[in-house]
Each structure stands twice: as C-alpha cells, then as structure tokens.
Amino acid sequence: MAAAVASRPPIAANEGVPRRRRLIAAWIALAIGLIVVWEGAKWLFGDPWRVHAAILGLPIDIEHVPPFRNRIATDLSLPHVWDVLGAFIVPAQRNGPPLGQILFGQALFTFREALIGFVVGGLLGLSLGIIFIHSRLAERAFVPYVVASQTVPILAISPIIVVATHAGWASVAIISAYLTFFPVTIAALRGLRAADPRAFELMRSYAASKRSVLWKLRLPTSVPYLFASLRVAAAAAVIGAIIGELPSGIPDGLGSALLNYNQYYSSGPERLWATIIMCSAVGLAFVGLVRLTEFLLTRDRYRPAPSTSTAS
C-alpha cells in the first residue's frame, strides 16, 4: 500500500503457457539428472553385476566391474533406481497386496493427521498473533516461552505427548500442531502490523473500533505473510506427523512403515527407499494443497508481485 502505482496488468494468458511448459521441462530434466547421477555413481563406485540372458533368441552375457569401490554406492546402500521403483509393485509380504498400495494407505493416514495438526496449529498461531498484537504485555511475557518451546527437540517431546494422551492419532496431530504454530505466530505478528501507518490513521479518523481495525485492515494485510509461513509450516506439519508416529507405534501411518523397513533394511533396502519417496510425496502434496488454497484466496485480490527483482 505504498505510493500510487500505475496499472500493472496480470501476466497475459499466452505468456503463462510457455512458462509452465518450461517449468515442467525443467522438473523432468532435474529428475533425469538425478537418476543419471544415481546410476552413474553406481556405475563408477558400486557392485559388479552381470546379465546372463537371452533376448529374442540371442544370448547376452554382459558383465560390468566398476573401476572404483565405495560403500555409499553398493546395492545395499543405494539400490538401483529400477529396484526401488519395482518395489512399489511387489507385495511386501507373501500373498499380500503390492507395497505401493500399502504405502499409499499409510500415506493417506499420515496426511490426515498432518492436516488436522496443520489446521489446528495454524489457527493457534494466528490466534496467538492476534492476542499479542493487542496486548504488549502478553507478547513480551509469552514470546520467550514460545521460542524456547521450539528449541526442544521434537523427538524428546513426542513420547511425552503420546503417553499423556494414550497414543492414537490425536497425539500425532498435537505434535504436528506443535511444529506448525510457531512460524505462523511470527508471520502473524509481522503481517498484522504491516499495514501502512496512514491506513491506521484513516481508521482512527473513522473512529473505528479495534474489532473493525482487526477484521478490515490487519487481517487482510496479513494474508500474504501468513501464506508464506504456511508453506514452511506445511513441511513441518508432515514431519511432525511422521515423527509423532514413531514412538506411538501406530501401525497405520508412514512412521511405522519407516520403522519397519528400517529394521529389516538389509533384506530389502529398496522398500525403505520406496517409503522415503512416499513421505516426500506426502510433503509435496501438502505444500501443493497450501499453495492451491493461497492461489484461490488471493488470486485477484492482491497486487501481483513484481515479476522482476526491481521493487514496486
């Protein structure tokens, strides 16, 4: 809300398409690059392998011995990409459903816990911000405790919470909320104060009540700040949910899958890697959901951010 700005049209429709295509191409290129590095490392430092088979009647006998050796690239530490991907479609247990299906169900479970924790934590963070804005005393009194609470490692706290709430998904949601609320509180404190001082004077000239000022000025101004912190908090919420599942031994979530395949790593390293990929997918989906919400809520209502680095 600074000085008057001449009209800046939103990105024209035909400008957006090549941008998106370039973005997707970049993602694919990065994924391919990752695979190349992965397999390249195994080619150079990994275990020797041999293929002895027949393709279309022609016998093939290929053997490859990598020139160097390094423990990082062995088949135990770094399974081949195709082994990891293959693990999704192979049953984890004899006669059981494919691993991918099990992991997906567990991912949904963890996603739900994280979502509940995220929403609760987000609302808590915003509420704290609103309270602190209106009471300097409360802010100065509580902020040190709030900051201290975040420096305690979550692994230390989660067993306490699990025991106190008799385990179950609620404890996981609490841990998730615990990791979510702090960034939101900080962002709220900034965003709720971020409006132009003259806007506050304007409200004063209208003899507006504190409630009016909150709803009509402070909260709308804080929305971009809140969403910036919510993207960070989204990742924290998923991590909180997964870590929270570890001590509580809930079998339905990704946390228990991690524990399980960690325990039996040597008999099937690709399963743990598959689980890690699923955890990342949950995180990505979560952040994607937050960004989608942000897009829908702010699309035509806030001044478009400048596309170059020059400030507006």
Binding site: M1, A2, A3, A4, D196, R198, A199, E201, L202, S205, Y206, A207, K216, L217, P220, V223, R301, Y302, R303
Partner: peptide
Amino acid sequence: DRDYGMVFQAPVLMDW
C-alpha cells in the same frame, strides 16, 4: 462523531 473526512498524499486504498 465522524464529523470529517480525510485525504492523504497517498491514496491509502486497500488492495484487496
């Protein structure tokens, strides 16, 4: 009593 209106040097309009 809201007896006056005020205009500043910047328009101070609400973007949203």
